[in-house]
């Protein structure tokens, strides 16, 4: 299940979230991202919701936690491919105050490069 969950390019981590993001699956993802963060430099994270049909507060906690990690390097967290169901819980959660919502992975990557051009490395 954890196969092909991640893509890492140019210090951008693209994380394809599972069908159901709860305490159980969030724990597995956290372990894998902790390993990645330990050995690679990651400045921005894109959470891809295209396969996700369920999320609860554990998913909110996962994203908030990764947000705190990339903020050290002044990076951003992106949420993309949000469906109607996910939109409801995300908007109640207040996550949009810290994470950037965009339509697609490509749009998020573009935004990363735009923002990097405008700040010293």
């Amino acid at each position: 299940m954890m196969k092909d969950l991640f893509e890492l390019r140019d210090e951008i981590l693209i994380l394809h979230l599972p069908d159901e993001l709860d305490h159980h699956t969030a724990g597995e993802i956290r372990e894998s991202t902790d390993d990645l963060f330990a050995c690679k430099k990651i400045r921005d994270i894109i959470f891809d919701y295209s396969s996700t049909t369920f999320m609860d507060s554990s998913g909110i906690g996962l994203i908030m936690g990764r947000y705190r990690e990339v903020r050290y390097l002044k990076g951003n967290v992106y949420l993309v491919n949000i469906s109607g169901d996910m939109e409801r819980i995300l908007s109640i959660s207040g996550l949009y105050r810290v994470a950037i919502k965009l339509d697609t992975i490509d749009a998020a990557i573009k935004d990363v490069y735009n923002k990097r051009d405008k700040r010293p490395v």
Binding site: S57, G61, I92, S93
Partner: peptide, 14 residues
């Protein structure tokens, strides 16, 4: 410390 955000009861209520 376990990355809980304190939203559980708020979601149940909502």
């Amino acid at each position: 410390e376990l990355e809980r955000s304190g939203m559980g009861f708020a979601f149940m209520e909502a």
